[in-house]
Structure formats: C-alpha cells, structure tokens
Amino acid sequence: MKDTILQLDNLEMGFGGLKLFSDINISVEKGEILGIIGTNGSGKTTLFNIICGIYTPLSGKVVYKGEDITGIAPHQIARKGIGRCFQMVVPFESMTPLENIKVARANAGKSCKGPEFSIEEILELTNLTDKKDITTNNLSLPDKKNVEIARALACNPEIILFDEVSCGLAGEEIRERMALMKKLAEKGITIIVIEHIMVFIKEICDRVVVLHAGSLIAEGTPDEIIHNEKVIDAYLGGREL
C-alpha cells in the first residue's frame, strides 16, 4: 500500500498577470527519490518555494502527512520536517560548519521527527569532519554545498528538497552527492530533487516528473521519461538519450 507523504493538489501559480503553471498534481511516496526536470522558467524552483511556504499558490493545496500546509509560514513548515538545499548555495558564512549544524539542530531539529543523525555522523556523511571548525566563508564551493546538506540533515527532516545540488560541481563531486542521496533515502528520508543532469536523474531517481510550459507533461520512471516523446521534444532537444 502506498504511503503518501506529500501531495500537491491542483496547484496554480503566477506572478502579476503571468501564469507560471496550473493543474499541477504530484504525489510523493515516503522514502522515494523523486526527480523534477523541466526547462528554465518552467516553475521547478517556484514549486519548491510553494512547498516551503515562501510563496502561497493562487489555488490548490499542499498536503504534508495528511495536513494542509498551504500558506503556513516557512519556519513552521521547516519544523514539521521539510528541509531544503538552495540552488545558489547559502550556508551561514560567518559560522563554522559545526555551528551551522548546531543552529539547525537547536531550531527545527528539536521538533522534526525524521531519522536522527548525530552531529558526528552528519559531519562524516558530508565529509566535513576535518573542516568543522573553519569559518564557512573560507571553504570551497563543494564544501559550502556540503555545509548546506549538513544543515538540512541537522533538522532531522522527513523530506529534503534539493535544488540543482550538482550546479557548479565536477564529476566526482556530483557522484559523491548521488551516493549521499541514495544513502539518505535508504535511511528513510524522502528526497525531491530538481536537476538538469539527466545521468544524475537516471541514476538515483525512483520516479521523475517533467514540467514544461505551465503544465506537468510527463510522469514515470527515469527510463519511461527518457523515452517519452513529449519529453524528448520539449526538454531533451529532440534527441533520445
């Protein structure tokens, strides 16, 4: 029996007179890795912003574990167990990685009921053990991304939203993050990932949804998606992978 953790019902969103998307229905199962792909401007990050409470949709609702969380303040949503890593990496740069973890644990980490990792485990998972006391401002981009992941993990979330986590990273660094996401999913954390790198999506996602021109044009396993004609035309540039 399916155990739905997050449900997006008939979401419609726009800014000013411009409609961004409508009739978006996505259901996320507990423990799965869901990929979201789509052209730039198709509303992927906006979808994350709606889930996190930064934007309120024009219509439709976000249901998390059976509770309607549409329009709730972002910090309250975070405390319910939804964590996030941003596309433009934004760790707390004046703090060390350890302090980034501590501040997250002291806030959302107190109320979230997701799988709990100790601070040492988080540092180890994100390869930050040796760098835990260096001011984040002085770290490299991959390490800063790791700090963001560590911070999200310290909240004990049940869902983590990863927004283009591979952006600006090289091959091995991307593979490390793919491995980490798989590990987190095995621990029971549900993962929703926005990504442009199709190999990434194909390797780690259980299911993929495709946004294009204001609507959801396809949904299925990575294999089904890369052979879907609509997706090939709209997103893969007319070429099958």
């Binding site: 972002p74 996030r84 707390f92 997250a104 806030n107 980490g109």
Partner: peptide, 8 residues
C-alpha cells in the same frame, strides 16, 4: 531565507 528553512 535559509534561517527560516531551519525553523527560525
């Protein structure tokens, strides 16, 4: 924005 995402 990130502070809100950790429940602050």
């Amino acid at each position: 924005e990130a502070a809100e995402m950790i429940g602050i």
